[in-house]
């Protein structure tokens, strides 16, 4: 039964990504051209509510459905890995027009050439693993 909850959350997220057009290459292009508020509105409003949720969880020590503590790990401090990694990711995000969530949604939606993007993403992840120790972090 526990497995079902993860699939349901994924379905929920996938429907939102596709129906909000956040999975559309055109919306990503438009965002980087500053021609529309749409994507900024999605990310911005998600963030406002997200910050409130996290602060409420911390303030009231809200537990998981199973009664366990919710812990937030601080990200390790660095600039180079986040900046360089972020720039590389951004280049790909604009070119492929899909990030790692929506690319799977698009697969389900029947846009089969996205398989090439997913293959590239797996290849890129593998390359990072091979080169990790040679990169500034």
């Amino acid at each position: 039964m526990k497995n079902i909850q993860y699939i349901i959350i994924g379905i929920f997220f996938g429907v939102i990504m596709l129906k909000s057009e956040a999975a559309s290459w055109f919306r990503i292009y438009e965002m980087f051209q500053f021609k529309a508020f749409h994507m900024y509105g999605i990310i911005g409003s998600a963030l406002v509510l997200g910050v409130i949720f996290v602060q409420l969880i911390k303030l009231y020590e809200i537990k998981t459905f199973n009664g366990e503590q919710i812990t937030f790990l601080d990200k390790s401090k660095s600039v180079s890995r986040y900046l360089f990694g972020g720039i590389i990711f951004g280049l790909g995000w604009a070119l492929a027009g899909a990030c790692p969530g929506p690319m799977f949604t698009l697969l389900g939606a029947g846009f089969f050439p996205i398989i090439i993007v997913v293959s590239g993403a797996l290849l890129g992840t593998w390359l990072y693993g091979l080169l990790k120790n040679k990169l500034p972090h």
Binding site: R81, Y82, F89, P100
Partner: peptide, 13 residues
């Protein structure tokens, strides 16, 4: 595009 997304995402964590 996919390669940059995969590489960059893991590099940036």
């Amino acid at each position: 595009g996919g390669l940059l997304v995969g590489f960059g995402a893991r590099y940036a964590g």
